[in-house]
């Protein structure tokens, strides 16, 4: 479960990115986080991953209190999250297989666990034939699916994606979003930041709208009002 209570966050240069947000996301939910560019969506993601700290309020993530977490607990908290970025962030000199093996090893998986887990995850994202390919040999949509596989491979409780379709054409975006919905149906909580209105409308999921560091709408269905270009 993710819970933000009266959270405020200010960057070192004085930009007040989050101005008092309260938000609860239950286990197994699928949530779109939408809003114009610069409204604070990425900052919320960074707060969830512990990359930045709130200056006020409390944040709970999968049993960890992020607002006063100890140095030692941060890695453990991050293991409950799978994170996906707009720019994929794959390691270009590693094959698809090695990109996944690398993050499993990083959290202490044994060679046997790695060998068992990777084929399953690659098959889930439809890339079982691409295990030996390098990221540069794949299309954007395929690369993003590798990133999803990597986010899933350590079996996190929650997937967090920041504009995962930002670099993809509409067909690939739809495929990718459907894949995230499928993953959600397998039991993983999914939080997706996006500004693609058509996609959001199509899925009829919970939509949280952010504007200028505030939650301005939280409802099931489509986009509500305002500019959606971001």
């Amino acid at each position: 479960m993710i819970r933000l209570k009266d959270v405020e966050m200010e960057y070192d240069n004085g930009t007040r990115a989050i101005k008092g947000i309260s938000l609860t996301i239950e286990d197994g939910e699928f949530v779109f986080l939408v809003g114009p560019s610069g409204s604070g969506k990425s900052t919320i993601i960074k707060l969830l991953t512990g990359e930045v700290e709130p200056c006020r309020g409390r944040i709970m993530i999968n049993g960890f209190s992020v607002s006063n977490i100890s140095e030692k607990q941060i890695p453990l908290m991050r293991r409950t999250l799978g994170i996906i970025f707009q720019d994929f962030r794959l390691i270009e000199k590693k094959t698809v297989y090695d990109n996944l093996a690398f993050v499993m090893r990083a959290v202490g998986a044994s060679p046997k666990e790695i060998k068992n887990r990777i084929p399953y995850v690659l098959q889930l994202v439809g890339l079982e034939k691409k295990a030996g390919s390098y990221p540069t040999e794949l299309s954007g949509g395929e690369q993003q699916r590798v990133a999803i596989a990597r986010a899933l491979v350590n079996n996190p409780n929650t997937i967090i994606a920041d504009e995962p379709t930002g670099n993809l054409d509409p067909e690939r975006s739809l495929e990718l979003m459907s894949l995230l919905v499928k993953i959600n149906q397998l039991g993983t909580t999914v939080v997706v930041v996006t500004h693609e209105k058509d996609l959001v409308d199509r899925f009829g999921k919970r939509v949280v709208t952010i504007d200028s560091g505030h939650v301005v709408n939280d409802s099931v269905g489509g986009y509500v009002g305002g500019s959606i270009h971001g």
């Binding site: 991953t49 030692k72 941060i74 890695p75 453990l76 908290m77 991050r78 293991r79 999250l81 799978g82 994170i83 962030r89 390691i91 690398f102 993050v103 990083a106 959290v107 202490g108 990597r150 350590n154």
Partner: peptide, 17 residues
């Protein structure tokens, strides 16, 4: 640095890195 960033992101401990 990219690999280090990813390791941190997925929850590798400082010791491991």
């Amino acid at each position: 640095r990219d690999e280090i960033a990813i390791m941190r992101m997925v929850g590798a401990t400082n010791g491991f890195i």
